[in-house]
Every structure is written in structure tokens, then in C-alpha cells.
Simulated assay, not measured.
Amino acid sequence: MPLIQITQPPGFDNEQKRTAIEAVTQAYVDATGKPASSVWVTITEVPRESWGVGGTPLG
């Protein structure tokens, strides 16, 4: 069972998450030929103040 983990800042609504999960699953299926039913996707939301890019906090 493949597990794909997405970590992102909060802000996506449920429909956007659903769309992302469907798209990532389909991309994996297309790349590997594995059945979609075997692909797990999780989305973890991390507050912006807990992110940093290039040494600079985002929050």
C-alpha cells in the first residue's frame, strides 16, 4: 500500500483537499500502474508560523 503524504499550510477547503487527493492518486496510478484502491493520501496542515523558507519564518 503506497502512502503519499502532503504537508501544507492551512487554508484549503474540503473540496480543494478532495481534488488534490484525487489528482495525486491519479498521478501515482498513471506513473506506477498500481490500482487507485491501494493508494493512501494524507494531508497534514501546519500553521504558517511553523514554516520557514530560506531561513525566514512564513508566519
Rank of each mutant, 00 (worst) to 15 (best):
P47E: 05
T42H: 05
T44V: 14
V24G: 01
I21A: 15
T44H: 08
K17H: 05
I6C: 08
Q26P: 08
K17I: 04
T7L: 10
E49F: 03
V29I: 03
W51R: 02
I43V: 13
D13L: 06
D30K: 08
D13H: 07
G59W: 11
G54H: 09
T7P: 05
P2Q: 00
V39F: 00
K17C: 07
M1H: 03
T32L: 02
R48P: 12
P35D: 02
T44S: 13
Q8S: 15
L3Q: 02
P57D: 13
A23G: 08
I21W: 03
G33L: 00
K17Y: 00
A31M: 02
S37V: 10
Q5G: 06
G11L: 06
E45L: 01
G54M: 10
E45M: 03
Q5T: 15
P10N: 12
G59Q: 10
W51L: 07
S38V: 15
G52N: 08
Y28E: 02
E45C: 03
D30C: 01
N14H: 11
V29N: 03
P35I: 12
W40E: 08
P10M: 12
T56P: 11
P57G: 09
G59P: 01
D13P: 10
Q5M: 11
T56W: 13
A31S: 04
P47H: 02
L58Q: 07
M1P: 08
Q5S: 13
G59C: 04
D13I: 05
G54R: 13
R48E: 10
G59Y: 05
P2R: 00
E15I: 00
Q8L: 14
I43Q: 01
I21F: 11
A36H: 12
G52M: 13
A27S: 07
R18Q: 12
T25V: 10
I6T: 09
G11C: 02
V46N: 08
V41F: 00
A36I: 12
E22A: 15
V46W: 06
P10S: 12
I43F: 00
W51T: 03
E22N: 14
W51F: 09
I43D: 01
S37N: 10
I4R: 02
E45T: 02
T19N: 07
W40V: 14
L3I: 08
Y28W: 14
S37K: 13
N14C: 06
V53D: 03
G33H: 00
Q8C: 15
A23H: 08
I6K: 01
P10G: 14
T7R: 11
V46K: 05
V29G: 03
A31C: 05
Q26F: 12
G59N: 08
G11A: 10
S38P: 07
G55D: 14
S50W: 07
R48W: 09
D13F: 04
I4P: 05
A36G: 15
G59F: 05
W51K: 11
D30Y: 01
A23T: 14
G33V: 01
L3R: 00
W51E: 11
L58A: 13
G59K: 11
T56M: 14
K17D: 05
R48H: 07
G54Q: 02
G55Q: 13
